Amino acid sequence: GKMTGIVKWFNADKGFGFITPDDGSKDVFVHFSAIQNDGYKSLDEGQKVSFTIESGAKGPAAGNVTSL
């Protein structure tokens, strides 16, 4: 299901970062391709987001990332 969290950091040049889930679980990798907006796909440190957990090739990653 949907989770919420805070963006820990995001490197716009490399197109990835990490989200710290509100439930205290392990930080989740986020790739820019998972960001659900029409414009420039980037996130800001400290931004609140909702997301799902998808299993990627390198382990769990955030999917369906939407800013709240």
Rank of each mutant, 00 (worst) to 15 (best):
D44R: 13
Q36S: 12
T66D: 07
N64L: 10
P60R: 12
V28Q: 02
V28D: 00
H31V: 03
G17R: 00
L68R: 06
N11F: 09
A12V: 14
A62W: 01
F51D: 00
G17N: 00
K41H: 10
D23H: 08
V30F: 14
E45L: 13
K58I: 10
S33F: 05
F18I: 05
T20H: 10
T20N: 06
K48D: 04
A57M: 14
K58R: 14
G56P: 04
Q36P: 05
F16E: 03
V65L: 05
G5F: 01
I19T: 01
D44N: 15
M3W: 10
G46I: 02
N37Q: 15
S55Y: 12
G17C: 01
A61S: 10
K58M: 13
V65C: 03
K41E: 06
I53Q: 05
D13W: 15
A12C: 07
I35P: 02
V30A: 03
S42D: 08
G5M: 00
A62D: 01
M3Q: 11
N64K: 06
I6M: 11
K2S: 14
G63I: 12
A62Q: 01
V30G: 01
E45G: 12
L68M: 12
A57E: 12
I35N: 03
S50R: 04
G5N: 00
D38L: 11
F18L: 04
G15P: 01
K48A: 12
Q36Y: 07
S42C: 08
I53C: 04
D27F: 04
E54K: 05
G39P: 10
K14W: 10
A34E: 07
I53V: 11
N37A: 14
A57V: 13
K26F: 10
G63C: 06
V28H: 02
K58Y: 15
G24C: 06
S33Q: 07
Q47F: 05
F16R: 02
F18H: 03
G56L: 07
N11W: 11
G63R: 06
G56I: 05
A12S: 14
Y40K: 14
S50K: 08
Q36C: 06
E54I: 13
G15H: 04
S67E: 12
I53A: 05
F16W: 15
S67V: 15
K14T: 05
S42W: 14
I35Y: 05
G15F: 03
S55F: 11
D44I: 14
K8V: 06
G59E: 04
K14V: 09
K2A: 14
V7S: 01
Y40D: 12
A12T: 14
G63E: 11
G63Y: 11
H31A: 04
F10P: 00
G15T: 02
L43V: 05
F10L: 02
S55M: 15
E54T: 09
F18W: 10
L68G: 06
K8E: 02
F51R: 00
T52D: 11
D13G: 13
G59F: 08
L43Y: 03
D13S: 14
N11H: 10
P60G: 06
D13H: 14
P21I: 05
G59Y: 08
G56C: 05
A61C: 06
K41V: 07
D23W: 06
E45C: 08
P60K: 13
V65N: 01
S55Q: 14
G24A: 08
K8P: 01
D27G: 04
G63W: 11
Q36T: 13
T4S: 10
K58H: 14
D13Y: 15
F51W: 02
A34C: 04
D13E: 14
G1A: 10
K41F: 09
V65Y: 00
